[in-house]
């Protein structure tokens, strides 16, 4: 049942059928007639570089059938901008589409383009605060369904950068996400970004964890998370990140690590990540023997899948131990 061929609105277009590449194409898809026809009209309008309202209808139709079609999204954006279309209406349509196709990522980039253009073109006309608040809310709604979606987090970062949301509200958001799942590493990564991103990306303010007060706050935050979930890699990685970035002495973390793993009580280890950190502490203290013992505990008892890695670390120790002696 042709949709476009019988439609007088499309009578002037000669559809471009697909070139299958010879009589025996590999992995040829037996397209439905609907999809085939719609695609042949898209090829035709793209070849003619047509940007018109009916192209928007056509791309909407195709996105419904195949939301992973990057070319269609690209051409839709181009058309929207060429026509100076109502971008707020586009956002509303995107909300529905995002909910229908949750895993689709093209949508998030498209959204990024639309929101950016909306603020750029209509600066002063658009209620920016209302816009980013609505966007943040929508994103949070998407996280109800999949709290680790890479593309949605990437969009959230873009919102923070675009609208300068480096303040406490965004930090509270990460706390909310982590309260739901303390092991959600995407939320930890976002927290790192909110705390340090301004200094790293824009260099125009804020020292991130290099500010002693911020550092103390973030160390405390990670430590509290460890207390609740000792064998949770995310807050340990967060702590290690702070150490690496600030160059702070690992000595500050020794007592903390020893609450979860200590050479004195090798049978009472509560976290392999604590052992890992403890080994580093001993390296800093130039106690190669103790560091080696900790790494042995990991290799033989508490984390044998990484035996080779712990042995490699022990090998590095030999060199450093010799240098220290």
């Amino acid at each position: 049942m042709p949709k476009y061929a019988d439609d007088p609105t499309w009578a002037d277009i000669v559809p471009l059928p697909t070139d299958e590449g010879g009589p025996n194409p590999l992995a040829a898809i037996a397209y439905s007639d609907d999809y085939s026809e719609t695609m042949s009209y898209l090829r035709a309008v793209m070849a003619a570089k047509e940007h018109s309202p009916r192209v928007l209808d056509l791309t909407e139709d195709l996105i419904d059938m195949n939301p992973a079609h990057y070319t269609v999204w690209l051409y839709r954006a181009e058309t929207l901008f060429a026509l100076h279309s109502d971008l707020r209406a586009e956002l509303e349509w995107l909300n529905e589409t995002a909910l229908a196709h949750q895993k689709n990522y093209q949508i998030w980039h498209h959204r990024n383009l639309i929101v950016d253009r909306l603020c750029g073109e209509e600066q002063g006309v658009v209620d920016e605060e209302g816009l980013w608040k609505a966007e943040c809310e929508f994103v949070e709604q998407m996280f109800e369904r999949d709290a680790k979606n890479y593309h949605v987090w990437s969009y959230r970062q873009w919102l923070v950068r675009r609208f300068g949301l480096w303040g406490p509200v965004e930090l509270e958001f990460t706390e909310r996400m982590l309260a739901r799942d303390l092991r959600n590493n995407s939320a930890w990564n976002h927290r790192w970004f909110v705390v340090n991103g301004r200094a790293e990306m824009e260099g125009d303010g804020g020292l991130g964890v290099e500010d002693p007060e911020v550092r103390a706050r973030e160390v405390k935050f990670a430590m509290e998370a460890v207390a609740k979930t000792p064998q949770n890699q995310s807050p340990w990685n967060y702590l290690r990140g702070i150490v690496r970035k600030t160059g702070m002495s690992l000595g500050h973390l020794k007592g903390f690590a020893e609450q979860y793993a200590s050479l004195k009580e090798p049978d009472e280890v509560r976290s392999s990540f604590a052992l890992d950190l403890l080994a580093e502490v001993y390296v800093e203290e130039k106690k190669a023997k103790e560091a080696g013992e900790v790494l042995d505990l990991l290799a033989t008892r508490y984390d044998p899948i990484r035996k080779h890695y712990w042995q490699y670390r022990k090998g590095l120790l030999g060199v450093e131990g010799a240098a220290a002696a």
Binding site: A27, A28, I29, A30, S32, Y35, N66, A68, T71
Partner: peptide, 12 residues
């Protein structure tokens, strides 16, 4: 080989 119509999801 020839793939059924729902493979249109892999069209791109």
């Amino acid at each position: 080989g020839t793939l059924p119509a729902p493979y249109a999801a892999m069209d791109a």
